[in-house]
Amino acid sequence: MSIIVDYLIILWGFLLIGLMGIGGFFMFRKFLKKMPKEDGKSVMDWEEYYMDQSKHMWNENEKLLLEELISPVPELFRDVARHKIASKIGEVALKKNEEMITQEILIEGYIIATPKRDHKFLRKKLAQKDIDVTPYEQFFDLSQTDYTDNWQDSYKNTN
């Protein structure tokens, strides 16, 4: 009986260490996003800036489309994904000097904001909505790392 209790205590210890490691990993990622870059603002500061600047540009149809597109994201991470993607969509709209966020801007920003591994879900959702992805193939061909630093230069080079 004593050996079983010893093993349970050891397993419990490994479980706690593993869970704390996972939690620490996500906290560290959040910490890195709050670190200021060369311009003095962090990634999260820029996300907030673009959200605030583009808040008035959203129509109800685009909000509903965004909600539909992020529906494959697990519920636990959906708010974070929505914020990151919406801020990138706002950034694209502002850089193009658009008055309103259109479906085209939304899809382009969504592709830019998501990693390559999530593009298959996006393609599937767009196919369900009968939206042609042909005009956006150039964005699908690039990975997210190509966008993060100089996405505007990459965008100009593909056009």
Rank of each mutant, 00 (worst) to 15 (best):
S2F: 07
S2K: 14
S2C: 03
I3C: 06
I9D: 05
L16E: 03
L16G: 10
L16T: 09
G18T: 09
L19P: 03
L19N: 07
G21P: 03
G21S: 15
I22P: 01
I22E: 05
G23H: 04
G24T: 05
F25H: 13
F25Y: 15
M27P: 00
M27C: 12
K30S: 11
L32E: 08
K34D: 12
M35H: 05
K37R: 12
G40K: 07
S42V: 04
D45H: 09
D45A: 13
E47M: 12
Y49I: 07
Y49R: 10
D52A: 15
S54M: 05
W58N: 04
K63V: 04
L64E: 13
L65Q: 02
L66F: 05
E68Y: 14
L69S: 00
I70K: 00
P72N: 06
E75D: 10
F77S: 09
F77W: 10
D79Y: 05
D79G: 13
V80C: 00
H83G: 02
K88T: 15
I89S: 01
V92Q: 00
A93S: 10
E98T: 06
E104W: 00
G109P: 03
Y110A: 08
A113F: 01
R123W: 02
K125Q: 12
L126K: 01
A127S: 13
Q128K: 15
Q128W: 04
D130T: 08
I131A: 02
T134H: 07
T134L: 11
Y136V: 01
Q138G: 07
S143K: 11
Q144G: 03
T145I: 11
T145Y: 07
Y147G: 00
N150V: 07
Y155S: 02
K156D: 05
T158S: 14
